[in-house]
Design a protein around this nucleic acid. Sequence first.
RNA 1: GAGGGUGUAGCUCAGCUGGUUAGAGCACCAGAUUGUGGUUCUGGGGGUCGUGGGUUCGAGCCCCAUUAUCCUCCCCA
Length: 456
Amino acid sequence: MKPSIPQGTRDFSAEVVRKRQFIFKTISTVFERYGYHPLETPAMENLETLMGKYGEEGDRLIFRILNNGLDHPKKQEQARVDFEKVLEGKNVPGISERALKYDLTIPFARYVAMNHGQLSFPFRRYQIQPVWRADSPQKGRYREFYQCDADVVGSKSLLNEVELTSIYMEAFALLKVPVEIKINSRKMLSALANACGGQEYLTDITVAIDKLDKIGIEKVKEEILRKGLTEEQYSIIEKYLHISGSPAEQLEKAAALLGSEPLCEAAIAEIRFILDYADKLSSPESLFVDFTLARGLNYYTGIIFEVKAKGVKMGSIGGGGRYDELTATFGVPNIPGVGISFGVDRIYDVMEELGLFPESLKSGARLLFFNLGEKETKFAFSLAQELRSKNVAAEIFHETAKFDKQFKYAEKKNIPFVAIIGSKEMESNTVMVKNLATGEQQSIPANELAAFFESK
RNA sequence: GAGGGUGUAGCUCAGCUGGUUAGAGCACCAGAUUGUGGUUCUGGGGGUCGUGGGUUCGAGCCCCAUUAUCCUCCCCA
């Protein structure tokens, strides 16, 4: 048979794994600095935990796991009856009661609901794990991909939003990715909806203006009018979308337009709270107020975030916001929260495009010992062991072979140095070390080899 | 869920309006070169042309089906 992997999944080769781990490690280091703790949850959850949390569309994309033992003679009859129901589109525990997790937020909510007695609030956690979606794959979309989330629950303080903003700034600074961090408040959008027709239009308006930079203002207008708003009502939206200027000016203009709405006042207070901390953040120039920012998800209730990479054509590489009642669906009310996520796969693509990964991630071993025969290899082996004990990665070529072959191996594996030990070297107790990039070689006493590499 | 493109050597792909024995580059192996690579040269191994049918004297090429994969829209990260 021809080997293959399931559609929408990937193997990661050595270099890719190192680069991805570099991203994970950088981000988690920043999370830890702010007192966020790691959490891991199982790949699979009970189907019941996940169903109904992601909307109709989302439910269809959940990977369900078939129960074991359906072929057991005692169960076969029941399985047939149950399967008929599955064909009608129902979920039947007899056929499937587990599913692969679809995101990290719902499992986190489940965890908090299960353990809220033991947790001390506010509870901060970060989580970097794969999730699975039975979507049809295309460019930049996979059936297995990683999410990287940080959330704090059990606190309404806007200081959390400030810190999450700061986390974005620090993490992207460490990764050297130039970004724009956009913020808005969902309350501002609610105020807008109230001003032009009422809350029942909130979702329609949000969905439409969220697409602004994708489809252009004309299409946004079309879409909004199609939803039943009048030209007059739309004119308020148009004015809203044209608000510009410095953050302070933006807030003023918004107040002038929607000031009569109490929610607008609340929104302005939230945004102003964050802006008041701007001078204490590491890169305030990357923070922007963007009233057109809406985020697709409807569960956000306060501040919302979105991060875009500068100088690259790419969707957002991070996003998040405040939500209320994360755990209410699991019977534990009154736990508000706010969280952000990093789009790891897209960050990878951006960094690859801009050449931001450190060179050191490319090679494994620093040194390859040539294999020139049995005696020589024994000599090389003890030297290699010494290097390894001093944390210098070293490899010995696996069999005696022509120089040509061993050189090519080193080159392919991006190993920068080779060590040649033949009878001459063994006699004088030295090692011939060659730098492959420059072609220079020098004879180094065997007992100084480790020091030579440790100093590099 | 809707709509496109592509399946030929390990990889990337040529292959004319259907016409003898299906090619190239890279990779691999051997040699020129028994302790100094990246260049060059010579030789070599490798393919039931995704699968199944059909049209034809003749199909890698045309038709139908099927399957895999990539992409666009919807939605999302």
